[in-house]
Amino acid sequence: MLNPEQIELIHREIDGANTADESAAFRSLIEGNPEARALAADLRRVTAFLEHGGLREPPPRLQQTILDALGTPARASPPAIVRWFVSQWRLVTERMEAMMTRKALLIGSTAVAIVLVGAALITGFPPLGGGAGTIGGGDSIPGVQQAARYHGRVMTQADVSLKNPEIQALFQNDQVLHLVQSNAFQQVMRNADFRALQSDAAYNELMSSELYHELMANAAYHELMADEAFRDLQAKGAFRQSQSAEDMRALQDNELFRKLKSNELFLRLQENELFRKLQENELFLRLQENELFLRLQENELFRSLQSDETFRKLEENDLFRSLSQNEQLAESFMDEAMRFHK
């Protein structure tokens, strides 16, 4: 007869909640106790039974129905925004208070303020408001900073013209000009999936994240993305399931997965900390379910552009992101690049 502690040990093992020592105790228990072994086997069957089939897709209309019901969000009243920032600040200070005494906090804050003011005196104060100061300056690729004024408004042909100083600034950059004039870029820009992906929030957020940048610079990742078996598995969502459920058993019967397990690149990538982090990144996981993104991954040109630092910077630029969603504006952008002369 198993005692309550032994039963809990078995359940926790099934849930992956045991420490290394507890797992060793579990293994020892099931080796010497047939009742424990039978219970563990039954519980694994229950778990496999429950998790069979994974998550069901919600009805395709659900998201739009919710958004339609919401209507246009009323801009939050200033007090609501103030309340939000106050509560955020409270959150930060509460965490800081856990680490510092009140006195140390005062000294620390004063020191930070002095450093900030000093730095501002040397480098100049940042401009107020979102419109000015988006071209040129401190970024590693001049001319490719965020131009937030284009976010969320309808662009016109006039925005995509050499008369627009921001377009000029983009093309003044040799790397950008070279990229935009390249065959790979032009073909990807003419790809309808790519244009549609530009308005996907998850894609845009992920493109701006440091983690994604680092992974895109990883050669092993690109080699693996070029592997059809890996992409097929991603498209089936099986890989995601194996990561989230911590249950690799269901995958063992999957022929693609077996093939992938013998793939040296895959093994290398599994050991890569960046890749592991990315697999836990909600945005990345959402992108793995995005048909447009998966289809684009089959496109060799798109994959090669993804590893291009200039392209990634360009993707973070609101002006570019907005114009690239529209076929005509994207064409104009490329036309303007072709006729640009310094």
């Binding site: 998550l55 919600p58 919710i66 958004l67 246009t72 969000p73 801009r75 939050a76 969320g152």
Partner: peptide, 22 residues
């Protein structure tokens, strides 16, 4: 969203709708 961006609602619904539905 509180700042009036509709895309943000889309983002939140996209992040959670599948798991909440399930």
């Amino acid at each position: 969203y509180l700042d009036g961006e509709r895309d943000a609602a889309n983002g939140l619904v996209g992040r959670y709708q599948k798991r909440l539905f399930n």
